[in-house]
């Protein structure tokens, strides 16, 4: 009998614990659900500030760039029929484009977006870019006469010394797709083939690429500017080069964050408030001074001294929607290139 009582008490405890959880989980009246593929260490403080300033409770699902945002993107796609998210904060605009093409994004033209250059906004209003990263060359400081162009990858002088993150995922895919979109398939495929001939190494992520260059295993690598800045702030032996800045060169690829209103959002008004907040110059200033060191797209926003303002960089002119289409078309080719 005593045993039965113990078991019953244990079950009651579990039930109470569960109820306690469920009570906390019950949505308050003022809330917004955001799925973020921007690393949690950078996105969470911004979302907490939004909570403090507006009183709107933020319930978030986070993912990481390292995990290639597998969690949130697949959740968003699988939840299409009954969306749970109100807002998607993407770490680059291509994922936002994928959501637009799959009918998961909704139109919202934020008043805060008016001062953001048009190139970084979806013309139909399905996504808006903010706080960007530049695709830069990170170079080991010991290297004499460091490369200044991405063509260093195919230059025999640098054979076996170049490194690139897996082009199947993340911002590296965006970069390769941008090259395909800009150069055309033939030239881009020749470039990729030359990279193979020139024994370019492939790492699992941009962060790892930056670490390998810092340790001297490779001379240079294309990475995101935040990966370079964070290693420079740690005192690692690297420098950051904005590639292809010459008069006849295409310029540096800019990869902004993108924010999307989800179609069928349960809290559309709060979602719009959060989007306005994310697109504000103040949020861009915070993200510039955070360790992610992102470049504001609003002009005149204060930035740390080691960063260049957007106006000071020669930017590669691309159409992000076209890049997204190209990206999906070249994925099988990239899979083969990587050897999977």
């Amino acid at each position: 009998m005593k045993r039965e009582i113990n078991i019953a008490l244990f079950c009651v405890f579990l039930a109470l614990a569960w109820t306690g959880c469920a009570k906390r989980d019950r949505p308050p009246v003022r809330e917004v659900v955001v799925y973020a593929s921007v690393d949690q260490v950078f996105s969470e403080p911004i979302l907490r500030d939004f909570e403090k300033e507006t009183g709107i409770k933020v319930r978030a699902v986070f993912d990481t760039e390292e995990a290639k945002s597998t969690g949130v993107m697949n959740r968003l796609i699988a939840e299409k029929g009954n969306p749970q998210a109100d807002v998607f904060w993407a770490n680059e605009p291509i994922r936002a484009e994928v959501l637009k093409q799959k009918g998961i994004a909704d139109i919202y033209r934020s008043p805060q977006a008016e001062a953001i250059p048009e190139i970084y906004r979806d013309p139909e209003g399905y996504w808006t870019g903010f706080s960007a990263r530049a695709r830069v060359l990170v170079v080991n400081k010991q290297i004499q006469d460091p490369p200044t162009t991405i063509h260093a990858y195919t230059d025999p002088k640098w054979k076996g010394q170049g490194l690139i993150a897996n082009p199947l995922f993340g911002t590296t895919t965006v970069h390769i797709a941008a090259l395909f979109s800009k150069w055309g398939d033939e030239k881009a495929m020749a470039f990729m083939a030359s990279m193979k001939t020139n024994a370019v190494g492939v790492s699992t992520s941009n962060g790892e690429s930056a670490d390998f260059v810092a340790s001297g295993r490779y001379a240079f690598s294309l990475v995101d500017s935040d990966d370079a800045v964070s290693r420079m702030r740690q005192g690692k032996s690297i420098e950051m080069v904005y590639p292809d800045q010459g008069p006849d060169e295409p310029g540096c690829l800019i990869v902004p964050n993108a924010v999307v209103l989800i179609k069928g959002a349960r809290h559309p008004d709060n979602a719009r408030k959060l989007i306005d907040y994310l697109l504000s110059p103040e949020t861009e200033r915070k993200l510039a001074f955070a360790d992610c060191a992102q470049i504001p797209l609003h002009s005149g926003v204060e930035i740390p001294k080691e960063m260049k303002a957007l106006e000071a960089i020669k930017v590669m002119r691309i159409d992000y929607a076209r890049v997204a289409e190209t990206l999906q078309a070249i994925q099988p080719y990239l899979k083969e290139w990587v050897g999977l």
């Binding site: 690393d39 949690q40 260490v41 990481t64 390292e66 995990a67 964070s230 360790d291 992610c292």
Partner: peptide, 10 residues
């Protein structure tokens, strides 16, 4: 999950 998501750049 939290440890995993905080690992990126944490």
């Amino acid at each position: 999950v939290r440890t995993f998501t905080l690992m990126a750049n944490g």
